[in-house]
């Protein structure tokens, strides 16, 4: 099985889907001849031409709006936001139109668009290149939000997103692009959207997280295993709608739950996870539900020391895990 990076898995999934279905096309800033600022669409312009890999003006509302219109007419657009931070001008299109059209038209119309966006910090990107924006969309029924943590999941879930008949936001952690490598099968496969995945079995504490933080948790868990602390890790993979069943099962398994996100703490996706656990698992809980998250500060600071302070990292996860295990 070939080993590829996170971003190679993105590129492979896009290429295979474009080969499979000619209705699939890409639009975004610098996605064409340049192949994207992160090289996610590298080689696609050359292979599929300017009609299927379209460079757009610097207008996110238009990227989303054009994509939504094309999707409603039967195409399967993959729109790229250069950074998730820049999705804000497109929020009205995404929430008011894409998320609602199936419901509003009584099933006459649908909107099978995929919107990809790199998110997350730890790359000295400062304010406009580091944010996590999933919480903004995570209470909009009609939308799906996928945030994979491994190259294998990227390929299977991006294909599933493109084939899904409803709008899917696909957030890729930009630091994971070249940091994470993993085995990815050559063959065509899809992974179910809406299903969480156990990344590590354990009996002492349960960690529920997603995205790059899954790796921080896995690294910390390896260290704690040497001390005899056995960590169970659930990767949400889809943060909206949440896989309630898997969350409840994982929480009940150990009764001690740590939730980890890079997003700011209050009102994050994990706040909802905590609510689900407290609704369903009270009599299995052995400790207060713990959250490790970014501080409630307007944006990722630029100064390296301050960025480190803001970001979740393996040391912080390890400390939180140990405290919970010892409780």
């Amino acid at each position: 099985m070939p080993v590829m990076s996170y971003i190679q898995a993105v590129n492979t999934a896009l290429k295979e889907e474009m080969q499979r279905d000619e209705k699939v096309f890409i639009l975004g800033e610098d996605v064409g001849r340049k192949g994207g600022v992160f090289k996610a669409t590298e080689g696609l312009f050359e292979e599929f031409g300017d009609q299927r890999v379209m460079d757009t003006p610097l207008a996110e509302s238009a990227i989303a709006g054009v994509g939504i219109g094309a999707a409603m007419y039967g195409m399967r657009p993959v729109a790229e936001m250069q950074f998730a931070d820049f999705i804000m001008p497109a929020v009205n299109q995404i929430i008011s139109e894409a998320a609602k059209i199936r419901y509003r038209s009584n099933n006459d119309w649908d909107c099978p668009i995929t919107i990809r966006a790199p998110y997350g910090g730890g790359v000295h990107g400062a304010l406009y290149h580091s944010q996590s924006v999933e919480a903004i969309f995570a209470n909009q029924p009609g939308l799906k939000i996928v945030m994979p943590s491994t190259p294998y999941d990227v390929k299977g879930l991006l294909k599933a997103a493109i084939r899904d008949n409803d709008p899917v936001l696909f957030f890729e952690h930009k630091r994971a692009y070249r940091l994470l490598k993993g085995e990815v099968p050559d063959e065509d496969y899809v992974l179910p959207i809406g299903k969480a995945d156990v990344k590590r079995e354990g009996t002492d504490i349960t960690v529920i997280t997603y995205g790059l933080c899954v790796h921080f948790a896995l690294q910390a868990a390896e260290k704690l295993a040497e001390e005899g602390i056995d960590v169970h890790i659930l990767d949400l993979r889809t943060v909206y709608p949440l896989d309630k069943e898997a969350i409840i099962e994982a929480a009940k398994k150990t009764g001690k739950v740590l939730l980890v996100t890079e997003d700011t703490k209050e009102g994050s996706v994990l706040s909802e996870v905590a609510a689900i656990i407290s609704e369903h698992c009270l009599f299995d809980l052995d400790a207060p539900i713990q959250r490790l998250a970014g501080p409630d500060i307007p944006a990722m600071p630029f100064a390296p020391t301050m960025e480190k302070f803001f970001m979740v990292n393996p040391d912080k996860v390890e400390k939180a895990m140990r405290e919970l295990a010892e409780f």
Binding site: G255, L282, F283, D284, L285, D286, A287
Partner: peptide, 12 residues
């Protein structure tokens, strides 16, 4: 100090 602090799971 925490000897008599019981979690819901322990009490159940």
């Amino acid at each position: 100090s925490m000897k008599n602090r019981y979690s819901p799971a322990v009490l159940r």
